[in-house]
């Protein structure tokens, strides 16, 4: 059997799983995931083949950065061999993070730019913090990423949470 399937339509509820785990551990007031009735929508205002595309990750450069949880960025012209993700909640008994392309496809984006599918890859990629504080994400990380996006003249952004 190939891995291709056109008809899979179920998904794990991580909201339920995290709530159950918190309650099991004795936290009486489980984390409330962000919830919105509406969502904003910005249209692409030129062909993708003319757009500069940037990418955002939750991975960090190394273990030290994992404990500090700071906003960061790095140039795309030197693609890192790998990034540190051990502090994040990926499925550690089922998979591994040894292939950057599986969670931060800088090389594939570069190929897409060379092939003309996108205009170019942004000069930097951005790393944001995973934090319980939604206020921090909205009031600090959002504006900081927007500022870098504008500095780098980025037209569209691919965000890849791990």
């Amino acid at each position: 059997m190939s891995l291709y399937t056109p008809s899979h339509r179920i998904a794990v509820s991580y909201i339920d799983k995290s709530r159950e785990l918190y309650l099991h551990r004795g936290f009486g007031n489980p984390y409330r995931w962000a919830s919105h009735a509406n969502a904003p929508f910005a249209k692409l205002n030129k062909p993708l083949s003319e757009c500069t595309v940037a990418v955002v990750t939750t991975a960090v450069p190394d273990e030290d950065a994992g404990s500090k949880r700071k906003l960061w960025s790095a140039p795309c012209n030197a693609i890192p061999e790998n990034l540190f993700t051990q502090h994040l909640s990926w499925h550690k008994t089922e998979t591994h993070m040894d292939d950057l392309g599986s969670f931060l496809p800088l090389a594939h984006l570069k190929d897409a730019a060379e092939q003309g599918r996108i205009g170019s890859l942004g000069s930097r990629f951005y790393g944001i913090r995973t934090t319980f504080s939604q206020r921090q994400t909205v009031q600090e990380d959002g504006p900081a990423v927007l500022e870098m996006v504008r500095q780098d003249q980025v037209d569209a952004v691919v965000l890849i949470p791990i």
Binding site: L3, H8, I10, A11, Y14, T85, S89, W90, H91, E94, T95, H96, M97, D98, D99, G101, S102, F103, L104, P105, H108, I160, P161, I162
Partner: peptide, 11 residues
Amino acid sequence: DFPLGNPVGKP
């Protein structure tokens, strides 16, 4: 629809 970690595709 994969285990958390590799949303862009299998390693």
